[in-house]
């Protein structure tokens, strides 16, 4: 894994992929396919409420990863990083709460 600090010595296009963002991207695609299976009739889960809660939780884990690794908030000053963490936590709690109350 390399960060922006070692990019100055990068030579080949493959060097661009040597970042934690690539691993995060693979997770995001796998999580998307999993959510799609859970949200349609392709999953081996009979309880649609439980499946929906998992789909919502996965969505906010994905959002957090996009914020931290794609937007680079992982290395941002703590108040800015705290904003994305707080947004994920609060909005996740609200949406899951509203969903379960429905």
């Amino acid at each position: 894994m390399t960060s922006l600090t070692s990019l100055a010595s990068s030579r080949t296009p493959a060097d661009l992929l040597r970042t934690s963002a690539t691993a995060v991207w693979i997770f995001l695609v796998v999580a998307t396919v999993t959510s799609w299976a859970l949200g349609t009739d392709h999953a081996f889960v009979d309880n649609t409420t439980a499946a929906s809660v998992v789909v919502l939780l996965l969505a906010f884990v994905k959002v957090r990863f996009v914020g931290l690794y794609f937007m680079e908030l992982k290395d941002a000053p703590l108040p800015l990083r705290a904003l994305i963490e707080a947004w994920c936590l609060i909005v996740c709690a609200l949406t899951v709460g509203f969903f379960l109350a429905g």
Binding site: S35, L56, L58, A59, K62, V66, F70, T95
Partner: peptide, 17 residues
């Protein structure tokens, strides 16, 4: 990335849940 991020919630919320 924000445009991507918002869709990551909208898609499950409207289509899947």
């Amino acid at each position: 990335h924000m445009v991507d991020l918002l869709w990551l919630v909208l898609f499950p919320l409207i289509f899947l849940v």
